Amino acid sequence: MIYLDANATTPLLPEVLDAMLPWLREGFHNPNASYRGAKEARRAIEEARAQVAGLIGADPDEIVFTGGGTESTNAALKWLARLVGRKSGRVVTSAVEHSAVLKPVETFADVGYAVEKAGVDAGGRLKIDEFEAACGRAKEGGGFASLMWANNETGVIQPVDEACAIAKENGLAFHTDAIQAVGKIPVNVRELPVDFLSLSAHKFHGPKGVGALYIRSGCRFEPLLRGGGQEKDRRSGTENTAGIVGLGKAAELAVARIAAKETPRALRDAFEAKVVDSLSGVSVNGDLIHRLPHTSHLSFAGCEAAGLLILLDEMGVACSAGSACMTGKQQPSHVQKAMGFTDAKAKSSLRFGFSCMNTMEEALEAAGAVTKAVEKLRKVQGGGTGPVVVYSP
């Protein structure tokens, strides 16, 4: 199987598994106890905290370990909502956020918060003027802003630096869902003064079920989970030592890859070039300048994505029709709607996500499989084709 769904999750690197195994076997102790094994587990956790901090340019004390990206995001947003209050509180975000942001925000709207979702252009990039206007309206009564660093469906990188500056100018706290960006492109919280940042291990070759929330030093914060007071009373619950160690190791390896500028960009570009050269009616979706180096989002005129997924699975290629969280839902995603996709285009779209574990041979083989699948489905469905369409800002 050629695995091209790295936006959904990534394979565990062998070095990460090796780092985790001792803590699943002999290092099983509760890190909050006082005996030797527990103290060793505590040291391993603190080493991992330093490794994760190093990945995003933070101080170790600013890192809070969680059960994953969704928990990190919910913890930040629900605290900010409590902080500003619902009587006059405003929430500013975008129309293309992950459901881990949009679902909590919907609950805020249900109880009286004013929620504004700035739109995006045809390339999926934030309409900064809409975001700025919304922040201006939030300034008077108080509020906060949340904007994803990079989109999980299209890979489009948002102007987080501009958005953060605008939020700060208007006195708003700023959270970013950086789950798709961390470990893949440079992310530095010293260069971009966000207040809260969410990340997840399994998006950059760490284990599932573990993530982190960055909380800038000096920012007020009340925990989502209360109990035994772990993580300096910022996230209660006995720590997942093995998972945290795995996250730390994955972070250390990601730092090295980013420093060496090792990305799957060449694989992604070769894959796209072969598909576009081999087929008519292909649309390369999203801003081609501001996008993650591993993501390709394509539409195929005259084909339905559901059929293509079945054929590609039979041919040994794993990809997706969008967010893994939306699998099984027939309607176009909110991301595609916000970008102005027609229903037909949305239903013909596939996402391909490469990782450092893919090879050029796999990329070219996958492109050949996509070509065969599209040609076969077009014959069966009798769908028409059109010219190649590439979005360019």
Results as ranks from 00 to 15, higher is better:
2 I>D: 03
21 L>A: 08
24 L>C: 09
28 F>Q: 15
39 K>C: 14
40 E>A: 14
47 E>V: 10
56 I>A: 07
57 G>L: 05
58 A>L: 03
59 D>P: 10
69 G>N: 01
70 T>S: 09
83 L>Q: 12
85 G>E: 01
90 R>F: 00
94 S>Y: 02
95 A>Y: 01
98 H>D: 09
105 V>W: 00
106 E>K: 05
110 D>H: 11
113 Y>Q: 12
118 A>I: 03
123 G>L: 07
127 K>N: 07
141 G>E: 10
143 G>I: 01
157 I>P: 00
161 D>K: 14
168 K>N: 08
170 N>K: 13
174 F>A: 01
184 K>R: 15
186 P>L: 09
188 N>M: 08
189 V>A: 08
193 P>W: 06
194 V>R: 01
198 S>W: 07
217 S>D: 15
224 L>W: 14
233 D>T: 08
236 S>H: 02
239 E>H: 11
240 N>R: 05
242 A>P: 00
252 E>D: 09
253 L>F: 04
255 V>C: 14
255 V>F: 11
258 I>L: 15
261 K>Y: 10
272 E>I: 09
275 V>F: 04
278 S>D: 10
288 L>S: 11
294 H>M: 12
296 S>G: 11
312 L>S: 14
317 V>D: 03
317 V>T: 08
321 A>Q: 05
327 T>D: 14
330 Q>V: 13
341 F>Y: 11
344 A>D: 15
345 K>I: 07
364 L>Q: 06
370 V>Y: 01
372 K>N: 15
373 A>F: 01
386 G>Y: 15
